[in-house]
């Protein structure tokens, strides 16, 4: 009995230290998620102004651009999966990878060759373990993405897409005809949902601010030219979309981690309570046994002395 009591006490101590760790992670995630939300909010004006500018160009000019035109044939697709660097975030990684799997399945059923681009170590590990080819991986920023990384990723994806446009010559690097983006959208502290959307070719939503019926359409001056403006504008638009996805994913990851760690802490508390009860029971049983042994011993002694007299 005494042995198992010691065992229970050791188990309680181990659960207690686990609880301390999960509690700390929960608090860290909680403070970071607020920061991540603020960053996402701070980046919103840039995205909003860019969208406004893009739709202004789309509405007031009729210039076509390589990034907005549908390719004639789409037999090669690229997919960027935004995953986390670290685990312990509940179902965050698995649900985003599942969403990516679904998209891959759909693209495959359309007979497309797929190039996979990944951000985050979890996604990298997933693909490496299954020995699937990955074109490029970026890691090390999933909870605090910077614009520089989005710039780099955007640059790579646009290059892959444009390579397809410039095909015909001796192009060794096959270009992709569409680019998809899979990331986790942050809806609230409790709800984060994985989404897949098509990044390229761009679908420009016209008329961000639809003109009034009797209002004369403002004639935009483009400097140097509409084509040039679009040329500069669209890559930035793409990068800003990617940056936005990163920020959303970061907030989602931290929220998911906080939730997972909170339930881990709760579970640890539950376990400690349970083990404490069992340990107390064991201790009481031990005491009871000792008393009955002593009483038994005293009685036996008393009987023995009584017999002598």
């Amino acid at each position: 009995m005494a042995v198992s009591l010691r065992e229970y006490r050791a188990r309680i101590r181990s659960v207690e230290s686990t609880k301390k760790i999960t509690r700390a992670m929960e608090l860290i995630a909680a403070s970071r998620v607020v920061k991540a939300q603020q960053r996402a909010a701070a980046a919103a004006p840039y995205a909003r102004e860019l969208t406004r500018a893009v739709s202004a160009v789309a509405t007031y000019s009729n210039v076509d651009h390589a990034l907005t035109t549908e390719p004639d044939r789409g037999d090669r697709a690229a997919i960027l999966i935004v995953t986390s660097d670290r685990g312990l975030a509940g179902a965050y990684s698995s649900s985003i990878l599942k969403e990516a799997e679904r998209l891959l399945e759909r693209l495959r059923s359309e007979d497309k060759t797929i190039d996979v681009y990944i951000t985050g170590r979890k996604g990298e590990a997933y693909y490496k373990f299954r020995q699937r080819p990955v074109v490029k991986v970026w890691t090390g920023f999933s909870d605090q993405p910077t614009y520089e990384v989005a710039d780099e990723v955007g640059e790579a994806l646009i290059a892959a897409f444009m390579a397809g446009e410039a095909e015909g010559g001796a192009n060794i690097f096959p270009g992709v005809d569409e680019v998809h983006l899979v990331y986790t959208r942050y809806k609230s502290m409790l709800v984060q949902e994985p989404v897949a959307l098509r990044l390229l070719p761009l679908e420009v939503v016209e008329g961000e601010a639809p003109p009034e019926k009797d209002e004369v359409l403002p004639l935009y001056e483009f400097e140097p030219s509409a084509a040039e403006v679009l040329d500069q504008l669209l890559p930035r638009y793409v990068k800003s979309r990617i940056f936005f996805a990163f920020l959303q994913a970061a907030a989602s990851e931290l929220a998911a981690r906080q939730k997972a760690m909170k339930s881990a802490t709760d579970n640890a508390e539950e376990l400690i309570k349970k083990y404490t009860r069992i340990a107390n029971q064991a201790r009481q049983a031990g005491i009871t046994q000792e008393i009955s042994e002593i009483v038994g011993g005293v009685n036996a002694l008393a009987d023995a002395t009584a017999g002598h007299d």
Partner: peptide
């Protein structure tokens, strides 16, 4: 400063998009 040179913008400027 745009690609074409410095531009000054005063109120009621015509709509413009510049690099």
């Amino acid at each position: 400063r745009t690609t074409e040179g410095d531009v000054g913008i005063l109120p009621n400027h015509a709509p413009m998009l510049a690099v």
